[in-house]
Nucleic acid binder design. Structure first.
Lengths: 197, 197
DNA sequence: GCATTAGTGGAGTGTGCGCTCTAATAATTG
DNA sequence: CAATTATTAGAGCGCACACTCCACTAATGC
């Protein structure tokens, strides 16, 4: 009997579909995207599509899951740092870099548009949590070191930093003259002003 | 022959439908909202619905148009002020107040989810324009008065102020512990820090 | 009163799309 | 080679839902 031919090939195919979906979702929104369009973009038939993902929604969730994993991997990147404020600002900088992928803003809007689906809401919650776990310890450390203001709790500061990066993302999505690379420096400077004691 | 019975009644009915739609859109997203659900919420039949609005999309656009008109009316409110920075911060404050309507964040996400429709994109452009025309003159005045920083152009400062209010709105939508009223003061304070020379 | 038309409801229709089903092919094992 | 199963494509099904249609009522003008 023949079993899984090549797990790597399977995974690669999965990623091709995910990448295609990311593109189309960003362009047309979630409901505006037909599974047929994803198949066309990925160069596959609908049979193949549903062989890899049971539903269109599961595909969206798979994309979100991938994002969460990326955030979790990022933790290791800062493990040996000692300059807490520097790490916080680097994470903010990373947010600006993420916004540079031209598909990102559209995709974020697309996800927002179906946030009322419980599964999507849950995944986004998980994402928020992962991001908070990434940044909060560094905020606390920076506070103890006296590098940043202490009149707000670490949780609120974290929320406000996400407010900045999320707003940044949204602005890039909407505003012609507002580019991720061009405004990155201002983002970091604004975060610095916000954090100042 | 009998002509329009009561224009006011007609307009009122229209507003009832608009209000119902705002509620349902915010809860379920645009595509997740059926015209039947709007009718149920508004207490009307589908015949009545399509008597007032030719399509579901036109209804959404009507809501956006209403918002634009509100922004335009706001201009008069500040006409006789002389403290430019104060006006700018008041406009920011107004943004926080708008976010206090519990339906607002959901509605904004819903609109974002269908931003790929050309008509929606056009209306949002118009909205952005209206808001810029509201705030930009005051930013310029504040710069000339030396009340705020001058290292960024008025356009960029305006964009960044919207980044703050939009991000604020998004945060209220997502974050349990982040309430419009509770964080309003921090929003104004953050705007002040951003604007400081 | 009659004529006319705005306003209203709801049954029904047509379409678009997510997903299923079938059938064929490729890959693997023994 | 045969046997088995993963993989692929695409035709088509069923359903949900935006919108149409028709019948009726209410209001107004004459």
């Amino acid at each position: 009997m023949a079993r899984t031919v090549d797990p790597a090939r399977h995974e690669a195919r999965r990623l091709v579909i995910i990448d295609a979906a990311l593109t189309v979702f960003a362009e047309r929104g979630y409901d505006g995207t037909t599974t047929a369009a994803i198949c066309r973009q990925a160069g596959i038939g609908s049979g193949t599509f549903f062989h890899y993902f049971p539903t269109k929604l599961e595909l969206l969730l798979a994309i979100l899951t991938l994002g969460i994993q990326e955030v979790r991997h990022a933790e290791a990147r800062y493990a040996d740092r000692t300059d807490a404020l520097g790490v916080v600002l680097d994470i903010v900088r990373q947010g600006a870099d993420d916004a540079a992928d031209p598909r990102m803003p559209g995709f974020v809007r697309a996800v927002g548009g179906v946030m009322h689906l419980p599964d999507v809401a849950a995944k986004l919650d998980e994402d928020t949590h992962a991001q908070q776990e990434l940044i909060r310890p560094w905020v606390e450390r920076a506070q103890r070191a006296g590098e940043i203001r202490t009149d707000l709790t670490p949780d609120r500061i974290t929320s406000w930093l996400y407010l900045l990066t999320d707003g940044f993302l949204g602005r890039v999505a909407v505003d012609e003259g507002f580019t991720a690379q061009g405004e990155k420096a201002t983002l970091v400077e604004t975060a610095r002003r916000f954090l100042a004691p």
